[in-house]
């Protein structure tokens, strides 16, 4: 992979995760919140699903359409247990059920995570990026993953930023999937002075 592109993704991961931590800490006030340095990867699309987890593992996927100066999609995928732990912290509901309240908390959580990265990218490039209302799916990882890729019409490579954090002492794993339209990725590259993105 191009060095400059990897550096850019790492920087985006760091800044975006920083924004997300601040926003989530405010939401989960009083709970211990510690962030592990994120990892950014560019993956061939057939391998990406394995990276995110077993195909049959149940995950929560939050998917957003991005419009403005940069078009594309962003997604946030996390294992079911991590998602339910966050729901417990956010709502106090410890039933472990995916009810209306849990879905709305997950939608809000995904919104915060994704817009944190979008805002970071917006600041780095001075380009406007507006997120849509989030879609939420609780389903097999493989099904969520391929729906995200097909929805964004990604046919080759995909950027996955894995974040790990601890909320109330429990490890939470989450994956931010960054899917800009190719032409707009080129636009970002030009603005940031990166070659051959």
């Amino acid at each position: 992979m191009n060095e400059a592109k990897l550096d850019f993704l790492k920087e985006l991961a760091n800044i975006g995760t920083g924004h997300a931590t601040t926003a989530l800490s405010q939401m989960l006030s009083g709970k211990l919140f510690q962030l592990v340095v994120p990892e950014a990867r560019l993956l061939p699309f057939t391998e990406a699903a394995q990276y995110v987890g077993g195909l049959e593992q149940v995950v929560v996927g939050i998917f957003i359409v991005v419009s403005g100066d940069v078009g594309g999609h962003m997604a946030f995928m996390l294992p079911y247990d991590s998602a339910m732990h966050l729901v417990r912290l956010l709502t106090g509901d410890d039933s472990g059920e995916v009810n209306e309240l849990a879905l709305s908390a997950l939608q809000e959580l995904g919104n915060i995570m994704i817009t944190s990265y979008l805002n970071a990218l917006s600041k780095m490039t001075n380009l406007l990026m507006a997120p849509s209302i989030p879609g939420v799916a609780v389903d097999m990882a493989g099904a969520v993953w391929e729906s995200v890729l097909a929805g964004a019409e990604v046919i080759s490579e995909v950027t996955v930023i894995r974040t790990e954090f601890f909320a109330d002492g429990e490890a939470i794993e989450g994956n931010i999937i960054f899917l800009p339209d190719q032409e707009d990725f080129d636009k970002i590259a030009r603005i940031l002075g990166l070659e051959e993105m």
């Binding site: 057939t46 049959e56 097999m140 493989g142 099904a143 969520v144 097909a150």
Partner: peptide
């Protein structure tokens, strides 16, 4: 059978696709 693959068997065995969403 992963995304984009085609697999085949003759006589016996199981062909499985896990996690069909929009595919």
């Amino acid at each position: 059978v992963n995304m984009g693959q085609i697999c085949s068997l003759k006589t016996e065995g199981i062909l499985t696709t896990v996690g069909l969403g929009s595919c």
